[in-house]
């Protein structure tokens, strides 16, 4: 059979799901070797997905369209999943802790499942409409999704924090990073995401100025990205200056990610505006 990008990409749904299960088993039964297998699966999935994305890029040239695979809902979901795994693998490598994988890989798997198996999301390669024909497309999408993916992982950390209401000596939850470390890590991840969301909003503004003649038009997508920006700005300021820690920041991390999801999907499906080409169809 011919290896197509769609096939390879839908396959990664299961690889990431498998990785999530392996991380979970390793966490519950405390077998480090299974965790290693989880890392292996994640890396394999990541490579397969990278090849899938590149293949799709090549396919778009073969079809005569020739554009980076970042132009519709399917492609953005794939890219979100890819970026989330990239950020996660970086964290795992830096922190040498696999429990975060339990709370991160499911985001990537879910995004891929939604992209591959929802009949409303077409995996067809579509030509670029005039509004998207710009060099800013790649810069804008990459920076925004670096932000979104970091927020997804920060949300996972928030869940971990809330799950671990105190530092246990033994038991399942003792394997989670200590509350202090989790809190610090979550904050760092939020700040990293905030930085990239800001860059994403700026690149979007530059692009909008080039395409529509206005860098800010209060289009629902723009407005919601600003709302998201405010939520995380609250988290950062409350912590730095008012000393909010732990639970409060964990809740803000969840609220922030809900806002991210609404910016990402809700705006496309429920509200109309300039970003309507991001719709499922």
């Amino acid at each position: 059979m011919i290896l197509t990008s769609s096939y390879l990409l839908s396959l990664t749904t299961f690889i990431y799901l498998g990785a999530a299960v392996l991380y979970l088993i390793s966490w519950i039964f405390r077998v480090d070797k299974v965790g290693l297998l989880g890392t292996f699966a994640t890396v394999v999935g990541f490579l397969a997905q990278t090849i899938g994305i590149l293949l799709r890029w090549v396919e778009s040239y073969q079809m005569g369209y020739g554009h980076a695979p970042l132009s519709n809902l399917y492609e953005s979901l794939v890219f979100f999943s890819w970026m989330t795994i990239l950020v996660y693998l970086f964290l795992e490598f830096r922190l040498k802790n696999r429990v975060i994988g339990v709370f991160s890989t499911p985001f990537a798997s879910l995004a891929m499942a939604y992209a591959s198996f929802n009949p409303n999301v077409t995996d067809e390669i579509q030509p670029l409409i005039p509004a998207l024909k710009s060099n800013w497309l790649i810069a804008h999408v990459v920076t925004c999704f670096l932000g979104y993916s970091s927020f997804a992982i920060a949300c996972g950390m928030g869940l971990m924090y809330l799950l671990k209401s105190k530092d246990y000596e033994t038991g399942l939850l003792s394997k989670l990073p200590s509350q202090k470390n989790l809190d610090e890590l979550m904050h760092q991840t939020i700040f990293f995401g905030f930085l990239w969301l800001s860059v994403g909003i700026i690149t979007g503004a530059v692009w909008a100025n080039e395409a529509w003649g206005t860098y800010w038009s209060w289009d629902p997508k723009e407005t919601w990205s600003l709302i998201t920006w405010f939520v995380y700005a609250i988290a950062l300021h409350a912590r730095f200056v008012r000393g909010w820690m732990g639970k409060k920041i964990a809740y803000l991390s969840l609220i922030g990610f809900i806002s991210v999801i609404f910016t990402y999907f809700g705006v496309n499906f429920l509200l109309s505006g300039l970003h309507s080409y991001a719709n499922a169809g």
């Binding site: 407005t223 600003l226 709302i227 405010f230 939520v231 700005a233 609250i234 300021h237 409350a238 008012r242």
Partner: peptide
């Protein structure tokens, strides 16, 4: 922080 909340909510 109050202004962040107000601006986000009214937006």
């Amino acid at each position: 922080i109050t202004l962040f909340i107000l601006l986000a909510a009214t937006s």
